[in-house]
Amino acid sequence: MTMATAVKTQSQGRRLDLQVIGPIIALIALILIGMALNSNFLSYANITNVLARSAFIGIIAVGMTFVITAGGLDLSVGSMAAFVAGLMILVMNVLTDTMGVTLPVILLGIALALIAGVIAGLINGLLITKVGIEAFIVTLGTMGIYRSLITWLADGGTLSLGFEMRELYRPVYYGGIMGISWPIIAFVVIAILGEVVMRHTAFGRHCAAIGSNERVARYSSIAVLKVRLATYVLLGLLVGFAVVMYVPRLGSASASTGLLWELEAIAAVIIGGTLLKGGFGRIWGTVVGVLILSLIGNILNLTDFVSPYLNGAIQGVVIVLAVVLQRKSAADR
C-alpha cells in the first residue's frame, strides 16, 4: 500500500451511496431470483423458515459487529455456542431429575446459557486486553478448546434434552405471537437495540473510535481496554442468547453444532459494510448480510439450478460480489 501507485482522486459522493446501497441491491437481487425460480419462495412458511434460521447467526453477528468495529475478531463463537448448548442440555437434564419437567428448569437453563456465554466472552476479552495476545490467536485457541469440550461432554456423540423437557421447551423456537415466531422477534429486537447502541450511544461511538485509531481513542481519555473487553463480553452474552433459541429447535448438541458459525457471522458483518479492520460498523448492514447468506442456501435448496457440489462456490461468489459492489469505488481512490 505504501508504495502504491497513487491513482487520481475521484469524487467522493458516489462511494458513500454505493456503500449504503450495495448490500441492499444484493439482497433484492437474491429475492427476485428466488421469486423467479420458485413460486413458494415468498410463501409465509418459507419466509418464516429463512428468518427463524437466520436468527442464531444473526444474533451472534450483531455482537460480532461490535467486536470487529472495535478492531477485534472472534473465531470462537461457533464452538462457544456448541459448548454452551451442550452445557445447558447437560445441566437441564440433571435438574430434571430433581425438579421434574418444570418451567424453573428451563429458566435456570436459560440463565446458565447466558452466564456461560458471558464468562466465555470474558475469558476471550481478558486474554486479549489484559494479557495482550492478538484476538486472532486467542480466539483460535478457545475455538479449539470449546470444540473439544463439547465433544468430550457428549462423549463423541450427541447430547439430547430429555424428551418431555424438549416438548416443554419447544415453543421457544416453534411458537410465537401473531404468527411471528420467537426467534424472529428476538432477532429483530436485538438488531434494533444493536443499531441504537452502535449509532446513538457512547459505547458504539467508542467502538468505532478504537477501531479507527486506538491511540487517538486512548489520548481522548477513552477506557480502551474496558470498551474492548465489553465487546467480547457482549458477544459472549449474545452467543448465550442464540443458544437459548437454538436448543429448543432440535433439543440436542454435538461436536458438529455451530460448525463454521464464526465464519458465517464474520462474512455477514463484512457483507453488511462493516470494515474488517475496524473503525466503522453498522448493524443493519449485518442484518442484511445474514439474510443474504441465508437466502443463498434457501434458494439453492429450493431449486436444482446448480449441482449441489457447487453450493459453496455460489455462496463465495455472492459474498465477494456483495463486497466488491460497495468497495469498488473505494479502490479507485
Binding site: N40, N49, L250, L302, D304, N311
Partner: peptide
C-alpha cells in the same frame, strides 16, 4: 425428486428439510 447434501449434520438437515417441504 431432489437430492442435496445434508453433510451428516442435524442443523443442515433441518434447514434442508424445511426447504424441501416448502418446495
Amino acid at each position: 425428486v431432489a437430492m442435496d447434501h445434508g453433510n451428516w449434520n442435524r442443523d443442515t438437515a433441518f434447514t434442508l428439510m424445511q426447504d424441501y417441504l416448502s418446495r
